[in-house]
Amino acid sequence: MAQMNLLEAIRQGMDEEMEHDPRVFITGEDVGPRGGVFRVTQGLFEKYGPTRIIDSPLAELSIVGVGIGAALADLRPICEIQFADFIHPAMNQIMNEAARMYYRSGGTWTVPMVIRAPYGGGVGGGLYHSQSVEAFFAHTPGLKVIIPSTPYDAKGLIKSAIRDPNPVLFFETKKGYRLIKGDVPEGEYTVPIGEARVAREGSDLTVYSYGMMAHYAMQAAERVSQTDGIEAEVVDLRTLLPLDTKTVLESFKKTGKALIVHEDNLTMGFGAEIAAILASDGFEYMDAPIQRLCAPDIPGVPFSHPMQDYFMLNPTKIADAIRDLAAY
């Protein structure tokens, strides 16, 4: 079993898929010899050459649009958006074209593509290099939206995403790229899209999260277990769309208390959907008001580092919220 970080796991997953399927290629800004700004594609240009690792213009609309056309015509593109904040110029291509193509063509054209984008704050990036944008896409039927929090899941899910015959958005916590490390087994495996994972079992309450915040939620759960004897179950959603409502509800039936944690801002965030599902389908199991711990509703992650700290969640803030909910 090899230890690797999140970034290396994603790279290895893409590398393996490129090895066994010659239709897979990567395009995006500086993905070639540079290896991407975060070095996720490092070494792949040397291995696969310029026809499979293709540097693109700094123009997200066309990166995604070209990916859609290539996917329609047989290839398996992986389009890298350098920062999730830069995905907005490509919104029309993703929402109007990729997501709707299979439906609008009456089930004849499929768009088997992956769009990867590093998301999230805590790295001093300021308003346009720190965004969490998953809620826009999770509201778009026809897309699949994945946000892994461990190297094991990241590798298994990027492989599933590349093999999936539908458009998949794959968001990667940039803060966690090198921070999050874990075991990744030798040899072939995949992680199915659409399945949440009970990352930690507990009986007092459930923390629902994904990505970097799922990683922090695990730390917070361990901390309150040691300091307060509170046993929090942690459900790592892994896939937001399609959502594994079964696992979400099963955990709630067991604990009756829900704390939903995401780095994206509160209002109309993904947590609202989880809360709605628990309220409508888990009402009789509810022992406490459903809690959401999310970023404040402000236009962006401010630059000044103390302000960034006010904005960002961390294990301490999550642990405090767990204690509050457990005490209800």
Binding site: S62, G65, V66, I68, G69, A70, A73, D74, Q93
Partner: peptide, 9 residues
């Protein structure tokens, strides 16, 4: 851009 993508294939 979609046509350009088909051309890329």
């Amino acid at each position: 851009p979609i046509a350009a993508g088909a051309a890329l294939t």
